[in-house]
Amino acid sequence: MKLSEVKDILKATIETGGDKLDMEIRAGAGGDLMSDILRGPKEGVLLLSGLNNIQSIRTAIIAGASALVLVRDKTPDEEMKNQAREHGLPLFTTPFTMFTACGRLFNAGLRGVDKKRTV
């Protein structure tokens, strides 16, 4: 799915990366523990997190995630936005909780990074 669809499905606000809405998102991953996140996302993966600090931005960049969505309307600070901008990482915020945000994306056809698909 396109990043623009992610934005619509999550009723998201664009903090950075508004020029990348045509980007193709292949899978999604969610989490608040950075080491867990580092095991999953690669290129083309959308990352959802409730962790609103600079480490979620660094983790997304290092993991090679395509975009980061902060759930529950968490507002990133300037340093987070600057670092996301500097590395070309689209950063969105959504009013939905992690569960609801993931559910809405899954319902629209986006799948996880699980090695063995059970659904």
């Binding site: 608040d32 523990l33 950075m34 080491s35 867990d36 580092l38 095991r39 997190s49 962790l51 600090n53 480490q55 979620s56 983790t59």
Partner: peptide
């Protein structure tokens, strides 16, 4: 609280 301490650090390095 900063998102660390999952107990996956060294295993992630090995992987």
């Amino acid at each position: 609280q900063m998102g660390f301490g999952a107990g996956m650090g060294l295993p992630n390095i090995k992987k």
